[in-house]
Write a protein that binds this DNA or RNA. Structure first.
Lengths: 214, 214, 214, 214
DNA sequence: AATGAATGAGTCTTCATTCAT
DNA sequence: CATGAATGAAGACTCATTCAT
């Protein structure tokens, strides 16, 4: 299922990365924990080494600098994940799968909420860094825009043609959908994982109402 | 206008604070600038002093620690601002001013967008701190909840009674409205100030549609 | 009486010093308090100013440096006081006054104990400085030796001639007498002023026994 | 010989402390040297590092703060030493060893003079700190009192029974003996190590005379 | 004369990074 | 490969001293 593909991003990403030894994986896992808990700058390399159960020198065998650890953690986000995130909308399935607008909205929003729930630590670290590094956002957004164009927007076009969706510009529609996920993200970031099931129906009520054709 | 009350928070806060000398204000201004640009930990006190045009020791005359500078910058946010942010909705005006749902939504959303546009630097610094300091969010949210209860939710009740607003729980309605502002905020944070006028009407279209009575 | 002359050295010294304004005296008084409480290096000029009730700049009007304050406090010790300390033994009085060895010992020891009791703060500051400044001790000892030669040792000679005192070298006799005062001083330094009357008789018992002719 | 047990405290303490590396011992040695020469506050960490031949950061690997270095230097004084200092007087030996009062006095005073001579730097640092930290004295004195009660005072009792010692209260007798050592200490502190042999006999003459039974 | 804000050299301390073992 | 002691550059903070008002 596509659900699988986009959840638990970090653990999977570690497992797939075969050129990392067990210790090196431990280092990244520990780093993520600490960065998410205290922030990047407040975390020092001795804490990382200790939590990973290795010597401080060992950290520097694979990662030449502390920044390289951060990069290794954020890499999946800017790499394969963006694709996974929009991959749901490949043309071949929307006719069959999205019979109603709500079906479509549910697929998109629910999946992203789960993604947020399961990867909020990486996201937290990413955001804290992106706030002060324009380039991080640029890169991610560039990838994202392209992927949106080639996938989500095609689906939107299809829905509009079938008169299941209001006839507004694609970016605007995307923005409103994203808004509900972002709101959910904020709650997760500041209060920990939330119950998706408890949120999803009311969110769909609102989006369906706001995005139905006039 | 109430518009004035909630915009350009930091500048106003500096002006009103009479127990700050010109140099001390310069220090806070420079600090905000640098914190928003590079983050708190990446900014060192010599940069602050240099940018403010004072000696490093001068920074420490008024502010005993670097953290105290940060606190002085964030103080207005958790203090007067929360109240100002919800103060607009005092009972005595909604009958007169908010003839339609769109009137109400416009007042709320437009004002918040302007606020975001003009104070995004303080907000950026606040968020970067709040990500790793639960307490900051707790405090702000505590204040915010109370203020919402006593102001916005009363207005919502009134609108529902007049059948101008869908009959959903107050927090859910607030969440959707906030979602659009938060989305706007993200754009401002990562790409700088945006054009409110260009955004507002389409946002209102969406909210009005999604929040009208069934 | 000579008792008066050597007690409460510091206050008297301040009063006699007519070229000091009231504020300047307050500065010295506060400094002594603080130096005796926390030590010289742990006391900063702002504390001195605050305790004296003046501005920090005022401190530097009369005293060019912090060290100069210290010097002004210790000056009496190396100046007039040494003389006062040995002045008791001027030749013209010992025949009359010191009928017995115990009379003599009592005069010397009791007076010094009172002196210690009433000036222990200055002494404390002096010792803490002298520990790391050979020169301070050199100066004081130089003065002291000379004064001893010209006064105390003459008395000792007289006592020996009258066969009231053991026939040991003068410096050795002085050393034993001083030893009892030094022991008293230590108690005062570390535990605050002591009861002289409670100590004096037993001390005299010991000294009289140890210094009587064989 | 018991002589060994109480002399050259600091060097012995370093050697016995196996959890200190050579560099760490060098740091403590250099620190003691500098503290004794200039005082604690006037000595900075870069001086310590330089004198020890290590980098400044190395100082802070083992000792978290500058104060911790001081504590590490003074630790032996308040710990093992007090016991060693009074341990000489265990009951089983005084009958045999101290045939005369002078034997006893010689053992006590001579040993302490040697101790003072060989450890005056630590003592100097201790005193400079104790002057402004009551607690240091409290701790040391508490230990000392107890040890005196259980050792020295027993010996005094025995000597009195054998009518070799004047029948005065124990603390008073101790005070007079200590007085001669303290006087010796002062000379060492302010003028460097002294010749014990040259002092001891005349000191014993005096003490023996002053403390013999009437 | 008095003030107290301003100064900046100097201190303690941290921590990313290196390297001999 | 792994270790962890060693490094030293850099940062937060202090405080004696100056000077315009």
């Amino acid at each position: 299922m596509e659900n699988k593909r986009i959840t638990d991003l970090f653990a999977e990403s570690l497992d797939q990365n075969c050129d990392l030894s067990e210790k090196q994986k431990a280092i990244l896992r520990s780093s993520l924990e600490l960065f998410a808990e205290q922030g990047f700058t407040k975390t020092n390399t001795s804490q990382i080494a200790q939590k990973a159960g290795v010597a401080e020198g060992t950290v520097y065998r694979r990662f030449k600098t502390k920044d390289e650890i951060l990069a290794a953690i954020l890499a999946p986000l800017t790499g394969q994940v963006v694709n996974a995130l929009v991959e749901d909308f490949t043309q071949h399935r929307f006719d069959v799968e999205y019979v109603t607008l709500r079906d479509f909205l549910r697929a998109v929003v629910e999946n992203r909420m789960h993604f947020v729930n399961e990867n909020y630590k990486v996201i937290k670290v990413f955001i804290s860094q992106a706030l002060f590094q324009q380039q991080l956002v640029q890169t991610l957004m560039g990838e994202f825009q392209k992927a949106l164009q080639e996938n989500l927007f095609l689906t939107l076009k299809n829905l509009k043609q079938r008169e299941l969706l209001v006839d507004w510009p694609d970016p605007r529609i995307f923005q409103f959908m994203a808004g509900t996920v972002v709101t959910f993200l904020l709650r997760v970031l500041f209060m920990g994982p939330q119950d998706v099931e408890a949120e999803i129906e009311m969110t769909l009520d609102f989006l369906e109402k706001g995005l139905s054709p006039e």
